[in-house]
């Protein structure tokens, strides 16, 4: 039974890898239509929005407010000071402390 899992894993690998690879083969080094370029340049901002919301509201299912306070810290700190490390570690500490007090 275990041996045929490799077929499943290889299948999952293919359908994950191909969509990750194909755009690089077709888009690199080519002059793109303006509209498409604008679309692709919007993707990072838009993706971040969709990656954060609504997922963050259920990041700590046992106590959603812990994640919300944690992310509020990350937001405020990076607004005022920038950086990645302090927002990330600070929000972890705050979230853990909040969960602790539950």
């Amino acid at each position: 039974m275990s041996s045929n899992k490799i077929i499943l894993i290889l299948g999952m690998m293919l359908v994950t890898y191909i969509p990750r690879l194909v755009p690089f083969l077709f888009i690199s080094d080519r002059e793109l239509p303006k509209r498409l370029k604008g679309f692709l340049k919007s993707v990072p901002y838009v993706a971040l929005g969709a990656l954060i919301i609504p997922g963050v509201f259920s990041a700590t299912p046992i106590m959603p407010i812990a994640a919300i306070i944690g992310i509020a810290f990350a937001f405020i700190y990076s607004w005022l000071r920038g950086g990645i490390m302090v927002p990330v570690f600070g929000s972890i500490i705050i979230t853990v402390l909040m969960l602790w007090t539950r």
Binding site: A74, S78, I84, P87, S91, V96
Partner: peptide, 12 residues
């Protein structure tokens, strides 16, 4: 608590 890390990174 570490579950917040990636969201915090996206936010930052």
């Amino acid at each position: 608590g570490m579950g917040i890390a990636l969201y915090a990174m996206f936010t930052a």
